[in-house]
């Protein structure tokens, strides 16, 4: 995006970090950049980042990082404003890229929720769904993960600042897992693992500790959950997931992504049918 004379007193790019419905974990990844934080502060003008500083500079902004999903009417409007003020808009994390864990409401009746949870439900104004940023405005880049990988965040920022394509592969978690010489937990331990259909990026943290992948980075390109579900069910007797557990496995941080949503609904339906029969 910028490649003026390096070293010369060039104007620093203005960075803004926005929060929508989220837990703040992805923004925190930015503050968690212990080794790179000073370098980052040196390379960009941090113009809007309420989690870090109350100093707010007016827009427009060169790069906007957007965290969180859209769950209220106000947010629906606010994201339009953010888009208007941003040259480059990057949505970060599972909430911003697919709707997050709060998209569980998309599978249920929100009115019923509010009636059960709040003493005066009439005070609550919320949308019936939680949706990704890209469903509302044009997004220049989506960085997956719950939370995002801080090194990938630096990679995306650096690439954006210097006009290079980010090295963020859209392959499966298995690729990262095997490059590290990890033993497959499905094949060797019958563990329910979503690695083969999940987008890489986390460095295969869970399989590295002999646990199955939870699909925090959402569906990978060419994501086909059905054959994996079938195999995991075949292994259910050996400790893998049951139909109900599978439905829940697909219904976590990326429950609103097309492939995971469809699969969780399918497994839920089958589990209910099986229950009726028995």
């Amino acid at each position: 995006m910028k490649s003026k004379k390096a070293g010369a007193q060039q104007k620093k790019a203005k960075l803004a970090v926005w929060k929508f419905a989220s837990c703040d974990g992805c923004q925190l990844s930015l503050l968690d950049l212990e080794d790179e934080l000073l370098l980052l502060a040196n390379s960009v003008e941090i113009a809007f980042f309420l989690e870090a500083s109350s100093r707010v500079l007016p827009g427009p902004y060169d790069v906007s990082l957007v965290e969180g999903s859209i769950t209220t009417r106000e947010d629906q409007q606010r994201i339009q404003d953010v888009r208007k003020q941003s040259k480059t808009l990057i949505s970060i994390g599972a909430c911003a890229t697919s709707g997050g864990i709060q998209a569980l409401r998309n599978f249920a009746d929100v009115d019923e929720f509010t009636r059960h949870v709040y003493a005066t439900p009439a005070y609550i104004q919320t949308l019936t769904t939680s949706s990704a940023i890209s469903e509302h405005v044009a997004v220049d880049y989506e960085l997956r993960g719950c939370p995002v990988n801080k090194y990938q965040l630096v990679e995306v920022l650096t690439s954006t600042l210097h006009g290079k394509a980010p090295s963020i592969p859209n392959e499966s978690v298995c690729m990262e897992c095997k490059r590290q010489g990890q033993t497959c937990v499905i094949v060797a331990n019958n563990t329910a693992c979503l690695g083969p259909i999940t987008h890489a990026g986390c460095g295969a943290i869970c399989p590295r500790y002999c646990r199955g992948c939870y699909g925090c980075y959402g569906p990978k390109e060419q994501c086909k959950p059905a054959p994996l579900s079938q195999k995991l069910l075949e292994r259910a007797a050996k400790g893998s997931a049951s139909q109900n557990e599978l439905a829940r496995l697909f219904r976590t941080f990326n429950c609103n992504s097309t492939e995971f949503r469809a699969e969780s609904l399918l497994q839920e339906e089958r589990a209910q049918k099986a229950k009726k029969h028995s």
Binding site: C174, K224, Q230
Partner: peptide, 13 residues
Amino acid sequence: AESCLSCGNCTMV
């Protein structure tokens, strides 16, 4: 390739 997940495990090992 009906059940192939295109995960790449075969090529990695």
